[in-house]
Nucleic acid binder design. Structure first.
Lengths: 344, 344
DNA sequence: TTGAAAGCGCTAACAT
DNA sequence: ATGTTAGCGCTTTCAA
């Protein structure tokens, strides 16, 4: 006798008794696959279940069946619009397939992520979806957990970070950033600074590298790079730091994601400057807020919701050879980077 | 000598065999409550589990124990910053208590919400948290489901909507809107329009009513009210509509939430107007984006993350008499409602 | 301390 | 079409 005595809900047996049938019949009537139950008894059982307020015990069902109707989602930060949008896509896809979504949050800690995958594995979900770029380079332990899960029949899909041997939905961060660089150069910009996230985040690295590569093609070098948090406050702090260094030769700041870019715009206003006019700002992701800020933010559009949807499709399809789906990005030029006469 | 039969994970029995002990001992060593296992065997079992990559089957554990380590969260829309922020608080609180969060999304449909609660009940979660204002007035079916769940020993907490007989974290929507109205009148505004959500949303109703009540105390009436979606696009459409009606006597538009207000600001800019200067705009919630837009949005601050945290605390405390916790709101005046000389 | 054995609530052969 | 009978993987008496 421990604590936590569940006041106990009615069981299938209760329903069966109430309806005057066997447990098997009740099971078939309520949750059965191939219905082979007479209309008469079916009605009996249904009425009994209704009367008792019966809800099948999904855990028991899962142990008996050896499989669950859930998909587990792992994100870094659910309050971040990038992830919550992906999550929305995944929830849509999962519910369409009759699956429940369970969610865990890593807080961008590799250790926590590993721990979470391990716990989740215990839930025996139908599929596990990892959203957001992997963190750090030591993927071995994580890969091991996922391998074990796959070996036991689980499905895995990864959003955003190719490199793991599982179904993957990816976007070309490098290419997107390159295209952005091209477009900005074409708009007359020549002197750039970059606000990037922690170096362990592949996404940040790829975008920053891609941007530099794009500029390099035009013979331009990035004049200044600041590493900061992958958050709005990070962007604000970095921009404030940049201004403090008195770099007023910079014409445009590229932040590797929109929330950082928006933080940077706020820092500019705090310093009495006007984003777009005094200094161009560009981001990456095209989150909803990108059109809400003024001036609207130039960025690279990422189809986050679609990525979530595709991810659970991939996971459910469960091809044996990991499929890699690239979703397109597109440069969106807005008022935060007005065309300017090149000064070179 | 390992087996690793493809298709299923190692079970407790596998571990026990590998360690040369009984299943009971293995259970006690790995997940047991009062540890009464010799250091020697404990090490044996632990090593065996490690070697096999064992992860306990949580469903089986749940059926055996009759209780789970999960809390179920129900939100209307996870991509909405208001809800994702509450969700973040709940995830924090739950993980601190060693609980996993499962999440379902209603899409603001009362039917879907009811269905979800019913499914969730089958998971036998430790607690169910409903976030966001209840929808519609026919709460009976929902209340019934929750009652049954409670009767079976489940815990329920509700965020945002008092009125259900469960632990509740609420904010004073009416009072907050009244205070906002007071502050705006004090700032010299006299001629108001209101953008409200669908009437079935209590939150929308309370805020709109409170705002009107606050104005009434100053002898002012709302000049125009538009009902629209509770979303950014809804705010945009409503504002566009208002402008189309040629109501240029209006001095300030109050939208019952921030995303709508931000949509309205965008509509103003689309029409060549400058929010704040040509027309005051105020919202409600103080989402992160409220300080990102320009001009920064005047609003009523709601401690969303704290609400999530408190909610799961309430649920876990599980007082028998439903506790009602009011969290304070506060008016935040920003540049979208500059002080103006009253024209009255 | 340990193991044997009886469940937890449900499903799935196997008979009938 | 229905009931009987084993399980599913784990926990928890109950003896030893």
């Amino acid at each position: 006798m421990t604590e936590q005595a569940t006041g106990s809900s009615p069981t299938l047996l209760d329903v069966a008794r109430e309806a005057g049938v066997s447990a098997a019949t009740a099971s078939r009537a309520l949750n059965g696959s191939t219905r082979t139950v007479s209309a008469e008894k079916l009605a009996l059982v249904l009425r009994a279940a209704e009367r008792l307020g019966y809800a099948p015990n999904l855990s028991a069902q899962a142990t008996a069946r050896g499989s669950t109707k859930t998909v587990a989602l792992i994100v870094h930060d659910i309050a971040d619009p990038y992830f919550s949008s992906i999550a929305a896509g995944i929830v849509d896809g999962a519910e369409a397939a009759g699956l429940t979504v369970t969610m865990a949050v890593t807080g961008r800690s590799p250790d926590r992520e590993l721990e979470i995958v391990s716990i989740l594995r215990g839930h025996r979900p139908h599929a596990i979806v990892l959203a957001g770029s992997r963190i750090g380079d030591d993927q071995e332990a994580l890969a091991g957990e996922l391998r074990a899960y796959r070996a036991a029949g689980g499905r895995v899909a990864v959003v955003s970070q190719p490199g793991l041997p599982h179904g993957t939905v990816a976007i070309d961060n490098r290419g997107g950033a390159e295209a952005l660089a091209d477009a900005l150069v074409a708009h007359g910009y020549r002197r750039f600074a970059v606000l990037r996230g922690p170096d362990v985040l592949h996404t940040s690295r790829d975008r920053a590298d891609g941007f530099a590569a794009g500029l390099a093609r035009a013979g331009i070098e990035v004049l200044d790079t600041i590493e900061t948090d992958f958050t709005e406050d990070g962007g604000h702090a970095a921009m404030t730091g940049l201004l403090g260094r008195g770099r007023d030769d910079i014409e445009l700041v590229f932040a590797v994601n929109d929330v950082m870019a928006i933080g940077a715009m706020r820092a500019l206003r705090d310093a009495g400057l006007v984003p777009g006019r005094d200094l161009g700002v560009a981001g990456f992701d095209d989150i909803a807020a990108a059109v809400d800020v003024d001036p609207a933010l130039t960025t690279v559009a990422v189809p986050t919701r679609a990525m979530g949807l595709r991810a659970i499709e991939l996971a459910l399809a469960g091809a044996d050879e990991p499929e890699l789906v690239w979703l397109p990005t597109s440069v969106v030029l807005r008022e935060s980077t007005p065309r300017r006469a090149s000064t070179t």
